[in-house]
Simulated scan of single mutants.
Amino acid sequence: MPPRKQILHFAIDARGEKLPRVPKSRRPERAAVNALRALLEQHDHIVQEIDGQNDFGEDLHVTFTEDHQVTGDMIKVQVKGGNSWRRAGGYGVPVGHHASTWADGNVPVFCVVHDPESDVLYWANATKQLLEARRDREALTTITVNSTNQLDDASLAAFVLQARQYANRYQGNQALRIRLGEMAGVEFEASDLVVHFVNRWGEDLIFWQRQAEGFATLLHSDLDWEPRCIWPEALRVTNLRVIGPVPMVADVILDEAELMWLTACFEATGWARRPLPDREPAERGAADRGEYGFSARVGWPSAKVTSRRELVTAKELVAGERIYWLSQRWNERGRLVSEVWESVEAPGAVCVRFDQLMMADTFWPAERFARRRREA
């Protein structure tokens, strides 16, 4: 079927000849294109309209400028106008047969909807939504345009910044981290240290270290990319029943190659886990609390979930809660949280005292605990 803009409607004149008739959809579509074009050109951005005969899911090509200078940053825009695009919470643009071209093209595609009643423009990043759906193994049929993403004089600068950053995501040394982030479903900051590894089974592992954080994050394709908090002292060899001695990091079982890779990652990024020079250390309380170092920990928190348990992080724990703990032999027992406070010796970490013991274990804030569900 040809694109909708190529379909002509005809009327018959007095001589019996066919005359082209303008479709009713043309007016709201032209109003939408004109509104977006006027807004962009008013702020000196360059807009090139695509001829209707060559419209294959793109109405405008937009080249951004900065301080009246043309940049190399460009996006494509699919524009829709009229009441028919309204959906719950906003608007929707059908993907149709454009899924592959919108997702895999060299230039990102954005969707813009014009509401004729309010005369307001709204936008969405179609390429980003399609790639996120693909990662989750979903076939996206509609681009969701949120009503909070309004496009006007006040919000245009923020939109342009986001669009330019996304258009530049595959340029220079940023390309690899963007690809890895899209694969794992996370967004890396420019200062983050990111290392990729593929094991012998073809599984992807990503080591992610933020600066000034005392722990790192492991992202593993075989764990459905669920972030796991790891730290150097969590690398160990544990004697498991039946299996025997196996290398592990926190509660993740490794093979020897993965263990060597993580060891090298921790060795190379040790400087990044140090606190920033201008960070003030936490003050000790009136009663000086003792702290166990990470290397002194015996066992680790259980992450086993049942109908009566839920997963929480160390920073979410409060006194009086029941959590579950694994010994080095994988025996599980319940422990009562007695007290929680910020670590003095390891800035950013959390100290947790269990079962009214005189000393406490130290945890990184993202470490996970299986906690007994609270009563409703």
Score class of each variant (00 low, 15 high):
Ala11His: 07
Asp13Ile: 02
Lys18Met: 08
Arg21Tyr: 02
Val22Arg: 15
Glu29Gln: 08
Ala31Met: 14
Val33Ala: 10
Asn34Arg: 09
Ala35Leu: 03
Ala35Asn: 07
Leu36Arg: 05
Val47Ala: 13
Asp51Lys: 11
Asn54Met: 06
Asp55His: 05
Phe56Ala: 14
Phe64Met: 11
Thr65His: 07
His68Gln: 14
Gly72Phe: 02
Ile75Met: 06
Lys76Asn: 12
Lys80Trp: 01
Arg86Lys: 15
Ala88His: 07
Val95Cys: 05
Pro108Val: 02
Val109Gly: 08
Val109Asp: 09
His114Gly: 09
Asp115Phe: 00
Glu117Trp: 01
Trp123Gly: 10
Ala126Gln: 09
Thr127Pro: 14
Leu130Pro: 13
Ala133Asp: 06
Asp136Val: 00
Asp136Tyr: 00
Glu138Leu: 06
Glu138His: 10
Thr141Leu: 09
Asp153Ser: 12
Ala154Arg: 15
Ala154Trp: 12
Ala154Gln: 15
Ala158Asp: 15
Ala163Pro: 15
Ala167Ile: 02
Gln174Glu: 13
Arg177Ser: 10
Val186Phe: 01
Glu187Gly: 07
Glu189Ile: 02
Ala190Phe: 07
His196Ile: 02
Phe197Val: 03
Val198Phe: 03
Arg200Asp: 14
Arg200Gln: 12
Trp201Asn: 12
Leu205Asp: 08
Ala212Cys: 06
Glu213Val: 01
Leu219Ser: 05
Leu219Gln: 04
His220Glu: 14
Asp222Ser: 12
Arg228Pro: 01
Arg228Leu: 03
Ile230Glu: 12
Pro232Met: 01
Val237Leu: 09
Val237Cys: 09
Gly244Ile: 00
Val246Leu: 11
Val249Ile: 14
Leu259His: 12
Leu259Asn: 12
Met260Gln: 14
Trp261Phe: 10
Glu267Trp: 01
Trp271Tyr: 13
Arg273Ala: 04
Arg279Lys: 11
Arg279Pro: 02
Asp288Met: 10
Gly293Phe: 00
Val298Arg: 06
Lys304Gln: 12
Leu311Ser: 13
Leu311Gly: 10
Leu311His: 08
Thr313Cys: 13
Lys315His: 09
Val318Ile: 12
Ala319Glu: 10
Gly320Cys: 07
Gln328Phe: 00
Arg329Gln: 09
Arg333Pro: 00
Val337Pro: 09
Ser338Asp: 13
Val344Met: 13
Glu345Val: 03
Glu345Ala: 10
Glu345Arg: 08
Val352Gln: 03
Asp355Glu: 07
Gln356Asp: 15
Met359Pro: 04
Ala360Gly: 06
Ala366Tyr: 08
Ala366Val: 05
Glu367Ser: 02
Arg368His: 04
Phe369Leu: 07
